[in-house]
Amino acid sequence: MSGVSRLTAALGLAAVVLSVATVIGLPAPLQAVAAITVLVLLPGQALTRLTQVTDVALGAVLVLAIGLGALTFVSTAMFYLALWSWQACVVTMGVITVLACIVRARQEVAW
């Protein structure tokens, strides 16, 4: 049995920090980088790690596909439910990332 990996903790922490920073607002280039990271890359990476993919190329493409796919799912659902705002999407994707990190952390503790 071992502890939670640093990467899992870093992903969860980054999701919280960047979600808050993106919603509050950052100067122009940083806002784009932070938003893409928190909306696509972090949830993509956190969810891809749950699939236990070992192939580097497939893993890389899954980070993008899962990140974009999950954001599409969340945004579309919010539009249909008349709840959409980009801030709500940012918070939701941040929460998804944190939840994925918690699941991963439990797996790591169990291993």
Partner: peptide, 17 residues
């Protein structure tokens, strides 16, 4: 079929691009 456009709306609004 609004999926892609929902994604695009969110990305454009959040990034400010």
């Amino acid at each position: 079929w609004p999926g892609f456009f929902a994604l695009l709306a969110t990305m454009l609004a959040a990034t400010g691009l």
